[in-house]
Design a protein around this nucleic acid. Structure first.
Ligand SMILES: [Mn+2]
Ligand SMILES: [Mn+2]
Length: 570
DNA sequence: CATATTTCAG
DNA sequence: TTCACACACTCGC
DNA sequence: GAGTGTGTGTCTCTGAAATATGTC
C-alpha cells in the first residue's frame, strides 16, 4: 500500500488501516519535502529522506513516539502489536540510525516522570530513611526532598545500579525537526497529527477550500525560525522564567505582519511579567517595542505611575495623531484626561457618549445557575422569548451570510485541509482583499434574498467549522426568530462594524436577546440585553457595542440584577 | 480500596 | 493550551 | 471610576488504562 498523498491535497488515512498514523505521518513528511524543501537545511532534508527510507516497523514506532508527549520513553512501555517487527528490533535499528539515544542523561524530574512511585521507593527509600524521613512519602514530596542532593543528571544505570534488568530508556533525537515540519505544514503549533484522525472520525469537518500546491504558511526559513524562537520564549515565560532572562532571546523586529503581531503579543506578555517581577524599566522598554494596543496603554499607565508625566504625555499625544481603533481611542482618552492636569495642558474635549438604556431587576437568588439564566427565567414569556446568546448569534448570522467570502480561495489564505478559517482573518488587509465579495453579500441584505441564503447555508454547511459559527447553540427555531425579528438594515450595520475590526468587534455583544415577533414596528421586534449581576460592571468592548447600538437606533439595554435577599445593597 | 488526574488511542 | 467573561481586590479622588 | 489579577467554562470527542493520592 502506498503512503504517498494522492492528487492535490494531503489525504487522511482510513482508520481501518492499523498503521493509519504512519500513513498520516508519511503524508506530512512528503508534503513538506515536496513543497518546503527550500526552507530546510541539507541536514534536515537528509534526515527526512532517511526517515522515508526506514523500514515500516521502525518508521511506525518512531512515529508513535513523536506523537506521544515528551522525548523520553521506557522501552518496556512501547507496546504496539500492529508493528510488523518486534519492538526490540525496531528500537535497535532506530538507535543504530541515530533517531534514538539509548543511554540518555536523566534528570531527577525525568526519572520521576518515567517511573512509578512503587518503582522509585526501593531506589531512594534507604537514603530518605537515613535522613530521617518517613517511608510513606508521596511522589511529589519525595521529589522535593531529593531535588537538591540529586540535581545532577545521570544515565539510568547510575540511578538504578541494583536493578539488573532496569528498563531501558531511549530519547528521541530529532523532535525539533518533527515540530518544525508540523509547523510548516499547519502554519501553527496548535494543530497536530491528531487533526487527521479527528477528521477521519467525523468529529471535525472542514470546508474543502481549493488551494494550489504552492500555497504555504512560510516563504522564508527565517520566518520559520522566528516563529519557533518566539514560541520557545513564550514557553519559558509560561514556565515562570524571569522576563529579564527571556528578553535577550526574543527575535528583533520582522517585516512580516503576521509574525509582527505574534511578536507584539509576546512582548505584551513579557512586559507584564517584567512588571510583576519588579523590573519596571524592562517593562517600559519591552512595551515600547510592542505595537500591541494593550502594550502601548500599559507603557503609558506605568509611566504615569512612575510620575514621568511628560514622557507619557509626549507618547500619548504622538499616538493620538495616528489612526486609532475604537478601543485605542477609549483607552487613550482616559489617559489623556488624567495626564492633562499633570502637565498643565488643557483638558481634552469630553466626548459626548450616547446614554444607555438601563433597568434594574430584583430577583430571588437562584440556588443554581448563573445570573444570566436567572434573568432569562424572569424576562422570557411566550410572546417574547429571551435567549442567552452572547456573541454567538450575530457572529453566526454573519458567518452564514458571508460563508463564501470567508472561504474564498485567496492565495495564501488556505494551505492545508484543516483550516477553521482563512489564515489572514485577523490581518489588516483581510477585508480589503475581499471587499467586492463582501459588498455582494451585503447587497443581498437589500433584496430579501438574504434570508434564504442564510437558511440554505445553515442546512448545507451544518457542522462544518467556521470561525464565526458555533454550531451547538444554533437551531432552526432561533435562526427563524432572528431572521424575522432583526431588520436587514440593522444586520448590515452590525456586520459592517464587525468587519471594521474583526479581532476587536467579534466579542462584547450583550448576553441576551429578546424577540417580540408580533410587535407592530419592525424595528421593535427585538432587543439585546446585557445582564450585570451585583458587583459586575460593563467591560470596555461591551460599552463600545452598546454605544454603537444607541447611535444606530438598535434596541439594547443594560439590566442590573439585585438579589432580593441582599439587604446591604437596597 | 475509592477517587481524581493524566495519558493514550482511535 | 486560548479566549471571553465574571468576579474580587486595590488605589486615588 | 479605573486598573489589575484570578477563576471558570470551553476549547475538538469519547472511552479506557495507568497511576497518583487520600482515606480507611
Ligand atoms: Mn456575558
Ligand atoms: Mn453580563
Amino acid at each position: 500500500m502506498t503512503t504517498e498523498f494522492t492528487g492535490q491535497r494531503p489525504q487522511t488515512a482510513n482508520l481501518e488501516d492499523p498503521l493509519y498514523y504512519l500513513s498520516n505521518m508519511d503524508t506530512i513528511v512528503s508534503w513538506v519535502a515536496d513543497h518546503h524543501a527550500d526552507l530546510l537545511t541539507d541536514r534536515e532534508r537528509n534526515r527526512l529522506s532517511a526517515f522515508a527510507n526506514l523500514g515500516t516497523g521502525p518508521r511506525a514506532l518512531l512515529t508513535r513516539m513523536v506523537m506521544r508527549s515528551g522525548e523520553l520513553f521506557r522501552a518496556d512501555k512501547l507496546r504496539y502489536p500492529e508493528l510488523p517487527v518486534p519492538e526490540a528490533d525496531a528500537l535497535k535499528l532506530l538507535v543504530q540510525e541515530g533517531w534514538l539515544d539509548n543511554s540518555p542523561e536523566l534528570s531527577l524530574d525525568d526519572l520521576f516522570r518515567l517511573f512509578t512511585l512503587a518503582e522509585l521507593r526501593p531506589v531512594f527509600g534507604g537514603w530518605l530513611q537515613q535522613q530521617g524521613h518517613p517511608k510513606t512519602l508521596g511522589k511529589a514530596q519525595m521529589r522535593e526532598l531529593l531535588a537538591e542532593p540529586f540535581s545532577e543528571p545521570r544515565p539510568l544505570r547510575d540511578w538504578m545500579p541494583d536493578d539488573g534488568e532496569a528498563a531501558q530508556v531511549v530519547q528521541l533525537q530529532d523532535m525539533a525537526l518533527f515540530d518544525r515540519i508540523r509547523l510548516m505544514f499547519f502554519g501553527n503549533l496548535r494543530q497536530s497529527w491528531t487533526d487527521f484522525v479527528l477528521v477521519e472520525l467525523g468529529v471535525q469537518q472542514f470546508e474543502p477550500v481549493p488551494f494550489t500546491p504552492e500555497s504555504r504558511a512560510f516563504q522564508h526559513r527565517s520566518e520559520v525560525d522566528c516563529y519557533l524562537q518566539m514560541h520557545q520564549c513564550r514557553e519559558r515565560l509560561d514556565k515562570g522564567e524571569p522576563a529579564a532572562d527571556v528578553w535577550p532571546d526574543v527575535p528583533g523586529p520582522v517585516d512580516n505582519p503576521w509574525l509582527t503581531s505574534r511578536r507584539d503579543r509576546l512582548l505584551l506578555e513579557l512586559g507584564r511579567q517584567a512588571e510583576r517581577q519588579g523590573e519596571q524599566e524592562l517593562a517600559l522598554q519591552v512595551w515600547a517595542a510592542s505595537g500591541h494596543r494593550e502594550a502601548r496603554l500599559k507603557q503609558l499607565r506605568l509611566l504615569e505611575r512612575m510620575k514621568r508625566f511628560d514622557d507619557a504625555w509626549a507618547i500619548a499625544c504622538q499616538w493620538q495623531t495616528t489612526q486609532l481603533s475604537d478601543a485605542e481611542a477609549q483607552g487613550l482618552g482616559r489617559l489623556l484626561k488624567r495626564l492633562a492636569p499633570k502637565v498643565g495642558a488643557d483638558k481634552p474635549e469630553p466626548v459626548d457618549n450616547p446614554p444607555l438604556r438601563e433597568f434594574t431587576l430584583t430577583l430571588p437568588r437562584p440556588d443554581t445557575g448563573t445570573v444570566e439564566l436567572a434573568a432569562v427565567q424572569h424576562l422570557s414569556t411566550e410572546a417574547a422569548p429571551v435567549v442567552y446568546v452572547e456573541n454567538t448569534l450575530i457572529n453566526a448570522l454573519f458567518g452564514l451570510l458571508c460563508w463564501p467570502v470567508i472561504f474564498k480561495p485567496i492565495p495564501g489564505a488556505f494551505f492545508h485541509p484543516f483550516h477553521i478559517g482563512p489564515a489572514d482573518l485577523t490581518r489588516e488587509d483581510f477585508v480589503a482583499r475581499r471587499a467586492q465579495a463582501f459588498e455582494e453579500r451585503f447587497g443581498l441584505l437589500k433584496t430579501h434574498a438574504y434570508k434564504q441564503h442564510i437558511r440554505d447555508t445553515f442546512r448545507n454547511k451544518q457542522g462544518i467549522a467556521n470561525p464565526f459559527v458555533f454550531w451547538p447553540v444554533l437551531d432552526e427555531a432561533l435562526l427563524e426568530l432572528a431572521l424575522h425579528c432583526i431588520p436587514a438594515h440593522h444586520l448590515e450595520s452590525l456586520f459592517r462594524r464587525l468587519l471594521h475590526n474583526i479581532k476587536e468587534h467579534r466579542s462584547g455583544f450583550p448576553d441576551l436577546i429578546r424577540f417580540v415577533p408580533e410587535a407592530e414596528q419592525p424595528e421593535q421586534r427585538y432587543e439585546m440585553i446585557e445582564v450585570k449581576g451585583p458587583g459586575d460592571r460593563l467591560q470596555d468592548h461591551q460599552i463600545r457595542w452598546l454605544q454603537f447600538f444607541a447611535r444606530q437606533g438598535i434596541p439594547a439595554s443594560v439590566c442590573y440584577v439585585r438579589w432580593d435577599d441582599d439587604e446591604a445593597s437596597v
